[in-house]
Design a protein around this nucleic acid. Structure first.
Lengths: 194, 194, 194, 194
DNA sequence: GATGAATGAGCATTCATTCAT
DNA sequence: CATGAATGAATGCTCATTCAT
C-alpha cells in the first residue's frame, strides 16, 4: 500500500470514528458535517471526498457496528457450553444485551436506524457466515433459508424494539425486571419453529 | 358553547389534522411549523397559541392516533366470535395490520415515535379501559398487573417493529409472506404465559 | 372617588408595580407587555387602555422612581447635622449610594434611562421644591437659576455614570474603593462654584 | 498576503464599516445581522464566519472607535503648547468634544455602550501607551497606578455622561453654554489631585 | 487530492398591537 | 370598560454543499 493510499485510509478511518463518537454522544441530528470534519482534523470539503453525505457515513457506521456486535456475541459468549437450543440463543442474547447496556450510545445509534436491509447487507459482506452459524445454533439443519431468516428477523426486531425503551429509559420497567419476560418470549418463538 | 369557543375548537382541529397530513406525507422533520400554520389557514403565531412547539403537537397526535387504532381494533374486529385466546389476539392483530397497510403514513408516523410512555398515557386517558379488555381477551383473570403489561408491551413492540419494514419496504419480505411467521411468534408468546 | 374610578386606579397601580418589578429583575428588553399584563392580572388589551406602549410606562416609572430616590435622600439623610457645604452634599450622596447599592435593579433601571428631561419634569411635578432645597444646601442664595441647574446636572451625571459600573460590576474597582475618589471630585466641583 | 487573505480582510472591513454606519444611523437594536450582511454585500452566513454574533461586532467596534478618538485627541490637539496641567487637559477635552459634536452618531454609539472594561482593554491593546501619556500630562510622575486610573475614570465618565444629553439633545442646555461649567468641574477635579 | 471561504435557503420563536365581542 | 384571540413581520442563527485556489 502506497503512502498516499495509506493516508487516505487514515483519513477515512478518522472520519468514521469521529462520526461515531459524535453520533453516539450528541445524537445524529445535532451532529453536523462541520463537527465531524473539524474534529477528525480534515477540511470540510474533504468529508465529501469520502462520503456522499451525512446519511452515507451514517449507514456505513450502522452496518459496521451491528456486524461488530454480532461478531462479539458469537465469539465471546459461552453459548457453546449450553446444551439446549433455547439456552444457546439466550446466551447469545445475554451478550448482546450486555453490550447494549454497557454502551447506551451504541444502542441508541443502532436501534432506530438499523433497517433489515442495511443489516443483512452488512452481515452478507462479513467474513463470517452468520446464517450458517445461526442455522447450526438453532439446530435447523433442514429448514429453508426463508424460514431461518424470518425467525432471525423476528427475534432481532423483538429484542431491539423492546430493549430500546427498557435500557435507555427504564420504561415500562428496567432491564433486570424485563429480562424474564423477554427470555420467555424468545424461548417460545424459538421452540415454536422446531 | 359561544361563538369564540367554537372558533377556537375549529382552529385547533384544523391545526391537528393539517399537521397529521403533513407529518404522514412529508415526514416530521421536513414539516415546519410554518407549513402547518399556512396550510391550516392561520397565522404562524396562532400555532403557538394552541401548541407549545412542534413536539407538543406531534406527541398529542401520536397518542391520539394510537388510541384510535386500538379502539378500532377492539370495536371493529370480530375477535368476539373467536374461541381460543390466541385466535382472539390474532383477530385483533389482523385488524391493526389492516389499518396500517391501508395507511402507511400512519404506520410510519406512529411506529418510530410511539414510546411506551406516550402510549400508556394515551391509553390511560381514554374512555375505554384497555387493560381490562386485554385481560379479558387473554383470559388472565388472575395475572398480576405487571405481567399483563409486560406481555402487552412485548407483543406490541414485536408487531410494531417487524411490520414497519415489512409493510413500508416489503423487506425482508412482504406482509402476506411475513404474516404466518408473525402469527406463529405471537401465538407462541401468548401461549407461553398461560 | 367612585368605585369605578377606584378600580381603575388599582389596575394602573398594579400595572406600574408589576412593570417595575419585571424591568428591574428581567431587564427592560426581556420584559414583554404580555408579561406585565399577565402578572398584573389584567388582559393584554387592558394595558393599552392605561399606557400608550412599553416606553410610556417605562418613562413614567423612571421619573417616579428617581423622584422617590431624591425624596428619600432629603428626608432620611442627616445632612442637616453637617456644617460645611461639601459635607452636606456628601451626606446626601451617601444616602443615594446606599439606596443604589441596596437595590442594584433600581440602579440599573434608572441610570442608563434617566435623561435630564425626564428627571427635571419629574422633579418639577413633585410636591417638593428640590431646586430651593439644593440652593439652600449649597448656600448659593444669590446664584442664578442656570448656574444652580448646571451644577446639579454635572454632579448628578457624574455620580450616576461612575457608580453604574462601580456598583454593578465592581469595575474598575468596587464602591468602597471608589468612594474617596468620587467624594474628592464632588467636593472639588462644589467648592469651585462657591 | 495571498489573494484569499486579502479578500477576507476586505470582507471583514466591509462588515465592520457597514455595521458602524447602521449602528450610528439606525441604532443598534434596530440594526439586524441581515441588514449588515446585505448592505456589506455578503451572505448572511458569512457574517458568522467573522463575528460570533451582533454583540461581538458591536464590542469590537466600540473599542476600536474609542481608541481612535483618544488617538486623535493626543495626536491632533495642541495640548503640547499649553503650559498648565489643567489647560492641557482642557485642550484634549476640546478635541474630543469637537469630534463628538461633528459625529453625533459616534457619540451615541460609544457613550452608552462603552464600559470601562471594554475601554481599558482597547486602550491596553493599543500601540500607544495611554496611561503613560496621561501620567505625563497630569504631571503625576509619582502617583500610584490606581490613583491615576481612578482620575481618568472619573473625568471620562463625567464628560461622556454630561455631553451625551447636551450634544444630542441640547438638554438641559447646548454645548456652548455647558462648556464653561464642564471645564470648571474638570479643572477642579484635576487640581484636587495634584 | 485537499482546502476552507462563501453561500443563502430554511426554521423556530417572539411580541407589540389590533379589534370583534 | 375589559377582554384575549389573532396577527404576521421580524430576527438570530445553522448547516449542507459548492468551488476557486
Amino acid at each position: 500500500m502506497g503512502k498516499v493510499e495509506e493516508n487516505k485510509q487514515q483519513k477515512e478511518q478518522s472520519l468514521l470514528s469521529t462520526a461515531f463518537r459524535l453520533f453516539t454522544t450528541k445524537g445524529i441530528v445535532k451532529t453536523s458535517v462541520s463537527d465531524i470534519a473539524e474534529q477528525a482534523g480534515v477540511a470540510k470539503g474533504t468529508f465529501y471526498l469520502y462520503f456522499r453525505d451525512k446519511y452515507d457515513i451514517q449507514n456505513k457506521l450502522i452496518a459496521h457496528k451491528a456486524e461488530q456486535m454480532f461478531r462479539h456475541a458469537l465469539e465471546k459468549s459461552d453459548y457453546h457450553s449450553q446444551v439446549g437450543t433455547a439456552d444457546k440463543v439466550i446466551a447469545i442474547l445475554d451478550d448482546i444485551l450486555d453490550q447494549m447496556q454497557r454502551d447506551p450510545g451504541l444502542l441508541r445509534f443502532i436501534n432506530k436506524n438499523l433497517s433489515w436491509g442495511i443489516f443483512s447487507r452488512a452481515v452478507g459482506n462479513s467474513s463470517i457466515d452468520y446464517l450458517s452459524a445461526f442455522r447450526e445454533i438453532l439446530e435447523l439443519g433442514d429448514m429453508d433459508e426463508t424460514g431461518l431468516q424470518m425467525t432471525l428477523y423476528t427475534v432481532i426486531e423483538l429484542v431491539s424494539a423492546t430493549c430500546h425503551s427498557v435500557i435507555l429509559e427504564q420504561d415500562p420497567v428496567d432491564l433486570k425486571q424485563y429480562k424474564p419476560y423477554l427470555y420467555r418470549a424468545v424461548r417460545a418463538i424459538v421452540m415454536s419453529i422446531a
